[in-house]
């Protein structure tokens, strides 16, 4: 957990900020949404808990960027009352109508492509992979992003090959028991919305108009 945090911070520090070429934001800027409706997440992984976990981690980075984010759980409950229980059903619903129903400027759709841990004998790799897509209330797509993040416990060498093997096996077992999906997901969201090339321009509640 702590190692992951260090790794996350370092990778953010190395890759973050303004070093990467920015994605074209002209459509997003022209639309200039103030409020974003985050709808329940489509899950293509095998983990049934993944979509709710991802849904819960989406509001904070977007709101901190300066946008009004509709309450995700309230949104889910309202959609269920409208008979839309499955995220796939919500995808079939015209975004214009969704935006109108909630009074939102834009709708954010997120798909989980991967959310898994691959176990080898002595190492484990945890992977998350998401697609993000934002559609304006008039139905035009104004932004999209893809994020793929992997984590495997780093092993510090002890100098003894056998001791190293034991440490690696223990690390792999720990990761297997409790894969660190949530911190990895939060890192993916932060890169997507706040720091990476797809980072959103600042919203109206954070010095509107300025880029980061």
């Amino acid at each position: 957990m702590r190692k992951l945090l260090v790794l996350a911070l370092i990778s953010l520090w190395l890759t973050g900020c303004a070093t990467q070429p920015k994605q074209d934001m002209s459509a997003f800027r022209a639309a200039a949404p103030r409020s974003i409706l985050v709808v329940p997440v489509v899950n293509k992984s095998l983990d049934v808990d993944a979509p709710n976990y991802v849904l819960a981690t989406l509001p904070i980075p977007i709101a901190e960027k300066g946008y009004y984010v509709f309450p995700v759980n309230t949104t889910k409950v309202v959609l269920e009352q409208e008979g839309l229980y499955e995220p796939e059903q919500i995808r079939q619903y015209p975004p214009q109508d969704l935006a109108k129903l909630f009074g939102a400027d834009a709708v954010l759709y997120v798909t989980i492509n991967r959310w898994d841990a691959q176990y080898a004998l002595i190492t484990t790799v945890v992977t998350v992979d998401f697609d993000y897509r934002m559609v304006f209330k008039d139905g035009t797509e104004i932004w999209m992003a893809h994020q793929h993040m992997q984590y495997s416990p780093q092993n510090n060498s002890t100098g003894s090959p056998i001791a190293d093997l034991i440490v690696m096996a223990v690390n792999a077992a720990v990761t297997r028991a409790a894969p660190n999906y949530i911190p990895l997901t939060k890192q993916a969201n932060q890169m997507t919305f706040m720091y990476g090339p797809s980072a959103l321009p600042n919203g109206p509640y954070r010095d509107a108009g300025k880029t980061n």
Binding site: C17, I60, A63, E64
Partner: peptide, 18 residues
Amino acid sequence: GCATNGLYQWGGYEQKLY
């Protein structure tokens, strides 16, 4: 480096929600 100061307090909202 690329500071984004927090606008809000979220407490344990995210964690308690999931």
